[in-house]
């Protein structure tokens, strides 16, 4: 168990370092980093001062060292557009994205797992065929298209739901469904095949031979075992919820980091872009770590190994 945790921790740390390298080069990709990292109206002296502080004339490893030092001390520079520390601007919007991501996760997990389990226990039946269709459509139709279609039907035509913005539970419905769309399909597929595999095992047969009621056979014995692959897929999907927020938030005018990123890019507010990318990525990597440790709780073979 400790060995497992330690190796996962090291892996996570390496990944975070990798992310910092990617973000570091992000600003240097365009050739002249000062053009990105300083407001357009800055003077030549400002430009020189920035060059100095970033060490842009130094060799890359030294520059990277300065960059990492900034990260560790929590100093990501100031946002040009908002005139305050980029980290503060980010943290101001991040909860909105998380709320939407959480709502999407619930929709995806509940929808995907329930349809998948139903498909598995009625394999070959009508519900099962429905799962196949859902899985296929989920894979093929991009979430932003679903978002626009939802707006078209439920907001423009039927006028049941508000088109955009974040105000109250009703505004969560469409963005959460659109954002959950792809993951729900993938989870449906995974749940179905994972459940079918488990239902074939000897311990399910023995549970039935013991006279365990079918409902307990499915939910207690089979589902818990099917859960490990489902959760590992789900933990990968969490990335989609946050990553996909860029598009979903733009469609539904959701005041989260996705929208913030677009604004920052178009106003060339690169310190803010760097902050968003680095902190969000790191957050997701840590979340994945958490999920992996959760497996250990679910599966005693990992916990006690």
């Amino acid at each position: 168990m400790t060995g497992y945790i330690v190796s996962r921790l090291i892996q996570t740390l390496v990944t975070i370092v990798g992310i910092s390298v990617v973000v570091f080069f992000l600003a240097r990709l365009s050739g002249d980093a000062t053009a990105l990292l300083i407001p357009p109206e800055a003077t030549a002296e400002d430009r020189e001062a920035l060059k100095e502080s970033l060490g842009l004339d130094d060799p890359l490893p030294v520059q990277y060292g300065i960059f990492v030092k900034g990260i560790i001390t929590g100093d990501f520079g100031d946002s040009f557009r908002f005139g305050e520390p980029a980290l503060d601007v980010f943290l101001d919007r991040f909860p909105n994205t998380l709320k939407l991501a959480a709502a999407s996760a619930v929709v995806a997990l509940l929808g995907g797992v329930s349809v998948g389990v139903l498909g598995a226990i009625r394999a070959g039946g009508f519900v099962d065929r429905l799962t196949t269709v859902i899985a296929l459509l989920g894979q093929a139709i991009p979430s932003f298209l679903i978002g626009i279609m939802l707006i078209l039907f439920f907001a423009v035509e039927l006028r049941w739901l508000p088109t955009s913005g974040m105000a109250g539970p009703k505004t969560f419905i469409m963005p959460a469904i659109a954002s959950a769309w792809y993951s729900m399909a993938a989870l449906t597929r995974m749940t179905r095949s994972s459940m079918l595999d488990v239902m074939e095992t000897d311990y399910i047969r023995l549970a039935r031979l013991k006279g365990v009621p079918e409902r307990a056979v499915i939910w207690k014995h089979a589902f818990r075992n099917a859960l490990v692959p489902i959760l590992s897929l789900f933990s990968l999907q969490i990335i989609f919820f946050v990553s996909g927020s860029v598009v979903i938030e733009q469609i539904f005018a959701w005041p989260g980091i996705g929208q913030l990123t677009i604004q920052a890019i178009f106003s060339r507010d690169y310190p803010l872009v760097q902050t968003i990318v680095f902190v969000t990525s790191t957050f997701l990597v840590l979340l994945n770590l958490g999920v992996d440790l959760l497996y250990a709780v679910i599966d005693p073979r990992i916990r006690l190994a």
């Binding site: 892996q11 390496v14 990944t15 990798g18 992310i19 990617v22 992000l26 600003a27 990709l29 365009s30 990105l36 990968l236 990335i239 946050v242 990553s243 996909g244 860029v246 598009v247 996705g258 990123t261 677009i262 890019i265 178009f266 060339r268 690169y270 872009v273 760097q274 968003i276 990318v277 969000t280 990525s281 997701l284 990597v285 994945n288």
Partner: peptide, 22 residues
């Protein structure tokens, strides 16, 4: 490890940032 890193980052977010930069 490089593979892990690229699979772990929020893809669209990084992609638009890079496109924005270049």
């Amino acid at each position: 490890r490089a593979t892990d890193t690229f699979l772990a980052v929020p893809f669209l977010l990084v992609a638009i940032s890079v496109v924005g930069a270049v």
